[in-house]
Design a protein around this nucleic acid. Structure first.
Lengths: 372, 372
DNA sequence: TTTTTTTGTGTGTTCGAGCACATTTTTAAT
DNA sequence: ATTAAAAATGTGCTCGAACACACAAAAAAA
């Protein structure tokens, strides 16, 4: 029934010498082609495609049948040209000047701008202070005033995020999140990592690296604002990995440190645990632990942490940190924006979640992950 | 001098509460806009843009000045619609049925097809038998007959590759390679990994994982056809990493194994080197070594290898293989094709080389790298 | 039967860039 | 000054989808 195909290369199989092609080239049909084949005008075909009604049963049937047979795909370029709409997307991230962890996002955003700016995608970056819920709320209010087509946000404060999301939903603005998953009907997409699994990766690395006998500590460095869920998930993954080995009888300790008395507390802890073989830090502040270990000249303890901020990378290169896990904020911003843009432009389905691979970084493979 | 801007949001800086926008929205100018501003017709502007000549000095100057001031970017959607050309790209890879290492490429190819098919990019996959130079040559001949706009190839056989490249060059077909870099003027792009660095990564992993005292062996499993340069580069990186530690006095041995007497040779070697602490295998056949270690019930030796083929992943999960290095053939095919397509479609500069990050894989982060 | 309404169908314009062709202006030749 | 040739400029159509609007056919009301 595919006789309509004007020009259609067939697949070749020349397995004489085990070499063969997979080569199927199908003609691209236009609305005009369909109209001619069905013996109606392009207006009628258009009405069928968009179910605008005002089509006779007869015409409806013949056109629908043809569309299906041919698997008609509209030319997205032409559609877009006609629409000629400039879509606006806002991205809300913490100010990198307050927490450098977020600075690679800017590069990710710029990549999307470069790739899609010519397709009528305008991206507006809004920064908020990760130490102030008010700043977060204000930023969201401003974004809502701008009334973009979509918004991508780092949902830094849970309660405030829910409020903001409600607002976007009411305004008909598509909202997605990166880095942290928010369970809510009004979030259309998420890009980030499986934090539980990332904890398991850290544990496996610890097992590979550390001496076999001794205690292990998980350090949460909490800067008031709560990465709470973040860190808990990681800890859960870490502990459950070790729990599966019923012959593993070592202690896993949890330690929470605050900024003020950081060095003293950690030093005390280290003095009290002389049989420590490994430290896993759940945040990008891993370098603070590395600093203390350096100072005390301790090098038998395995240190595993998170994120490729400069201070961490320095300690990775000089051997104090053994591995870093890369959460790839750049890629998160990039994929988050790109999926929204392609949804708006090309009606691509918005992926409900994109889970980034968990990158393991040591001193030798760090370089290509840093070029931004 | 930017008074021409019809509508131009300015950047806002509301650092009262450390929150601020980076928000620059520039009007999109069309050729018609430029023509009106310069007081000429769109034909003249068009001639200036494409230096078709037949423009007076005066018009040339004023239009050029305007284009620069405004930073005119043509609407790629409109350009593409007009051109309405179907570009054809061939990709030449070894048959995954002969060597499964290449099978993820198919997924990468399909991704590009899905993304760019609506833009008039047709991709034709040609498979050759990686055990037959004749098959490789035949495949290239067929591709040349198809005379596509561009070709992406795995340059499996060195001498034959040079011949094929010459042919493509003469036919005006753009040629790029993936996986292996070929030093030649006629290769326009390369996507792959820095193999030397990947050897260093393996070495660093070995250092992290293995016991501190004992010998290390680098195993090359050569299947007649030569991954020779490949493996040599990796070995070089591996050795040089260890050489930088002047206090490291252990032996690094090189072992070449052939398929026929594989198990016997390896078993003998293991019996003769009782102080072995680590094995690094430079190819995707790592599982063959793992099989032997399993059989002999050896589990104190660190094993590091390459590529996420199923057998390797199995041994990764059951703990015989400690780490795998992922060469990401899927991403190589994806990026190689995409860069060619974007070059053809949007006149984007073809990147001379794209170096993929070197992914370190253990049992816990392998999953998202496998979903294809 | 004629008029009005409803329902169905086709035509023509738009989007922005690209390019062929027509038209005007300038310069050179007679 | 007149004509021919050359150079410069402008006009109008194309690509495919979308949609407004004009028009035709059938059905309902007068």
């Amino acid at each position: 029934m595919l006789e309509h195909t004007k020009k259609c290369y067939r697949a070749h199989f020349l397995d004489l010498n085990l070499m063969f092609y997979i080569f199927v080239y199908m003609k691209k049909y236009t609305i005009k082609d369909i109209a001619d084949l069905a013996g109606v005008s392009k207006g009628t075909v258009d009405r069928v495609i968009h179910n605008r009604g005002k089509v006779s049963k007869k015409a409806l049937e013949s056109v629908t049948k043809l569309l299906e047979e041919i698997d008609y795909q509209p030319n997205l370029i032409a559609r877009n040209l006609k629409n000629n709409k400039v879509y606006r997307i806002c991205i809300l991230i913490p100010n990198p000047e307050v927490d450098v962890y977020w600075s690679p996002c800017i590069a990710g955003i710029n990549n999307v701008i470069n790739e899609l700016n010519a397709f009528g995608i305008h991206i507006e970056t809004v920064l908020f202070d990760s130490k102030s819920t008010k700043s977060f709320l204000d930023a969201n209010k401003s974004v809502q005033k701008l009334s973009p087509d979509a918004v991508l946000m780092v949902p830094f404060f849970y309660k405030e995020t829910l409020m903001a999301l409600e607002g976007y939903h009411n305004l008909g603005i598509i909202a997605s999140t990166i880095n942290n998953r928010i369970e809510s009907e009004v979030v259309k997409g998420f890009v980030g990592q499986d934090l539980y699994q990332s904890g398991r990766v850290a544990a496996k690395l610890m097992q590979s690296t550390a001496q076999k006998k001794g205690d292990i500590v998980i350090i949460h460095i909490d800067e008031k604002y709560k990465n709470a869920i973040h860190m808990q998930e990681k800890e859960k993954g870490f502990r459950e990995y070790y729990n599966q080995f019923n012959n593993f009888k070592n202690h896993i300790i949890t330690l929470k440190l605050k900024r003020d008395d950081f060095e003293v507390s950690l030093t005390n802890f280290l003095n009290e645990h002389k049989n420590l073989i490994g430290i896993c830090v759940t945040t990008s502040k891993t370098y603070q632990v590395a600093d203390v270990l350096s100072k005390l000249n301790i090098n038998k303890i395995s240190l595993i942490g998170y994120d490729l901020v400069n201070e961490n990378v320095m300690h990775l290169k000089n051997g104090v940190i053994d591995f870093l896990i890369h959460q790839n904020p750049k890629q998160q911003a990039y994929l988050g924006l790109k999926s929204l843009a392609e949804h708006l432009l090309f009606e691509k389905e918005l992926p409900h979640e994109i889970l980034l691979p968990i990158d393991i970084i040591n001193s030798e493979n760090v370089k290509p992950f840093m070029r931004d």
